[in-house]
């Protein structure tokens, strides 16, 4: 593991909403093709961190990001075409969002926006992404129904299929299992284990056991502060430095 290529390098990051600091991170490395877990109670700055990576701060007037986020050797704050940046970064939100388009169009939207017009190519992309998101078998006969009317668990897999259609290098998941049944959660977790062969995954969750199942390394955020980063197993074998991390992992607060 030592010497593995770095996908995301965060240095001296400060995120503010108006004048309140939401998150401060001195240094954080996320390696290529790993599943990186971020745990911490609500309000610890996890979501703000994800929003800063793909520059969603531009849609929130009060949000202000300072410091350096280096993605694939590139400073995200200096990217000239922010839309091209976001295409390289897939996002999955806590609540599943099936767009009010057909299932097919949900997945075909991103390729279409990038200029793919060929029907057979689109068919191929839709099928591949739905298969990889473990949704194909359930929807292959009704691709032209509204994606926004699928069940919550199906919509969340549709969201993942949509993210995959961007062919991202980085996949950000924000508490994806919050509105999803346990069976679907397990299926998505299996999908993620496969996906990390092709991309880097950042998994924000408040389920401590989820990072244990999935991620190699984990960071613990608390009250807008990066408390600790380390091998995930260390969090559970007590080899962590900070007492607060130990307390959180053992469920004493949060």
């Amino acid at each position: 593991m030592v010497g593995a290529a770095i996908e995301l390098l965060v240095q001296d990051l400060t995120i503010r909403y108006d004048n309140d600091i939401a998150l401060r991170v001195d240094k954080l490395e996320i390696r290529k093709n790993e599943i990186f877990g971020i745990i911490g109670p609500a309000g610890s700055g996890k979501t703000s961190f994800l929003n800063a990576i793909n520059r969603m701060d531009e849609f929130n007037d009060s949000m202000n990001v300072q410091g350096s986020i280096n993605f694939g050797g590139l400073e995200v704050s200096r990217v000239k075409n922010v839309y091209a940046l976001r295409k390289k970064i897939g996002v999955v939100f806590p609540l599943p969002v099936g767009l009010p388009l057909s299932i097919y169009e949900n997945v075909a939207l991103s390729p279409r926006l990038s200029g793919v017009k060929d029907k057979t190519k689109l068919d191929e992309i839709v099928e591949r992404c739905l298969i990889r998101a473990a949704l194909w078998e359930e929807v292959k006969d009704r691709l032209h129904q509204l994606g926004s009317l699928l069940s919550g668990g199906q919509q969340q897999r549709l969201t993942i299929a949509r993210a995959l259609s961007q062919e991202p290098k980085l996949l950000l998941l924000d508490e994806f299992s919050i509105a999803v049944d346990p069976v679907t959660t397990m299926r998505i977790e299996d999908v993620l284990k496969e996906l990390k062969k092709e991309m880097t995954v950042v998994l924000v969750t408040n389920l401590v056991q989820q990072v244990r199942r999935l991620s190699e390394r984990t960071a613990f955020f608390l009250n807008g502060e990066l408390v600790e980063v380390g091998e995930t197993e260390d969090f559970f074998t007590g080899v962590v430095e900070d007492q607060r991390t130990r307390d959180y992992v053992e469920g004493r607060f949060g």
């Binding site: 976001r86 970064i89 009010p100």
Partner: peptide, 25 residues
């Protein structure tokens, strides 16, 4: 608003989001 967030997150521009998702609905 979630629909807009989802589109922006995919790298759609504001205008693409408006044309493909917001206006049709």
């Amino acid at each position: 608003p979630e629909f807009r967030m989802a589109c922006w997150g995919m790298g759609a521009t504001r205008w693409q989001t408006i044309r493909k998702v917001v206006l049709p609905n």
